[in-house]
Write a protein that binds this DNA or RNA. Structure first.
Lengths: 238, 238
DNA sequence: GTCTATATATCGATAGAC
DNA sequence: GTCTATCGATATATAGAC
């Protein structure tokens, strides 16, 4: 932890706008081969970082996961931490858009349903991404401070205005919009982050699509009813 | 990772019943001084493991956190992993009891309210414990396999029967009891585990008791209404 | 029981051949 | 761009004086 300043040109502290800020100074226009290799490394790294965390993952593991020598990873990304922040970037760009189901023209019921469905799809299809993000926030979000405090906060503020508008127009019951988001994130992401616990409690080797369906139905039930939108709920969630 | 078999007498694999199974063979009856020292180490370790994870925490950090030389920690616990599993133990014993608010004689509304309140109190008063647990599950729960699959599963099965009974007697709407637990855990624990994200979105340095109160009220609202228990909800959650 | 000093392993990162 | 070999730093764990 003392050699942090030695070579790394990217650390949590100097992440600026964060998005569209490559961790490594852009070299010459990349060849297709190079782009492919980088993509493979990032995909493999997402899984390794999800399973071991930043500190727990070793360059040897990361290299083995994508079938390359360690030196190649250093060639492309410089340091382990730089590779990690690039993995985080790809996750963030993937995520911010989901909330756009929530816009003034939509009905609260349709918007919340679509948002929950999208978030559950993310947990089902990209569980490693969710775990990397969860691990980062869990340990203080030191590599995400600017993202959380600037871009995410801005997005949430924007969506909170939409929800406040729905409430003012009497379209849904009054609830705190930001805490509603906190709970939506918690309920949907837990199906990716805590799958080990769920599988153990359910006595299954791993979660299946049926488990996700039951969970999504229950989340919908709680949220829609909790917001006063559950008047014509069809069926139950089991 | 190759020297795992060298000295450690406790690893995730050979945790038996887990509770009441000391990680280190019990020495002679402990003196008050020794018990105190062990308690201080465990308390400090909970915080360090919460902030850095098992892999990220170093013996030097752990030693500094409790003001002792590294060698003393090795004297009491043998290995870092053994110290970690003991920290996990103390957390588990603290947690299993909260669910006992849910028993057949209670009303669903009172039981769920008490359970949510207890879980939120845990997130507020023992956030480090929650984070250590979250980190462990996030990375596959390799040190908790037997606990999750035996004791926790047994407890959840038991409480699921209680909830099924309430449903059968028409005291609450039909919901999947196990997934209800998953969501209750997610919503309450997120106030400990993801506090960094919440603080950033809310633009505050850290969460205060008011934030916990708003969160608890909203969780109550969603759960009680979602279970058909919200007929006479007093007030709103903001 | 407590502590300093140190052995040994492993990690991140790099040098330099190809 | 790719890879092998290796350096230097840091980590866990222990030896042994007190």
């Amino acid at each position: 932890m003392k050699n942090s300043q030695k070579k790394q040109n990217v650390s949590g502290a100097d992440l600026g706008v964060l998005l569209n800020t490559p961790a490594v100074p852009m070299r010459q226009p990349r060849t297709t081969r190079t782009t492919q290799t980088i993509g493979q490394i990032l995909a493999a790294a997402e899984r390794v970082f999800a399973e071991a965390g930043l500190a727990g993952a070793t360059m040897a593991q990361l290299a083995a996961a994508c079938g390359l020598p360690k030196a190649n990873l250093h060639y492309y990304f410089g340091t382990k931490e730089a590779l990690y922040t690039e993995v985080l970037q790809t996750i963030l760009t993937l995520w911010l858009d989901a909330a756009d189901a929530i816009h003034p023209a939509a009905s609260p019921r349709a918007a919340l349903t679509a948002y929950i469905s999208a978030k559950m799809a993310h947990s089902r299809t990209r569980p490693y991404a969710s775990k990397v993000f969860a691990n980062e926030v869990l340990h203080g979000a030191v590599h995400l401070r600017s993202y959380l405090g600037l871009e995410l906060r801005r997005k949430v503020d924007e969506k909170a205005v939409v929800i406040e508008g729905w409430i003012t127009r009497g379209l849904m019951d009054p609830v705190d919009p930001r805490h509603l988001f906190f709970l939506l994130w918690a309920m949907t992401q837990t199906y990716a982050d805590f799958d080990a616990q769920m599988a153990a409690v359910l006595a299954v080797p791993s979660l299946g699509s049926a488990d996700f369906a039951v969970g999504e139905a229950l989340i919908l039930r709680l949220v829609l009813r909790g917001c006063g939108l559950g008047h014509d709920l069809k069926g139950t969630d089991r």
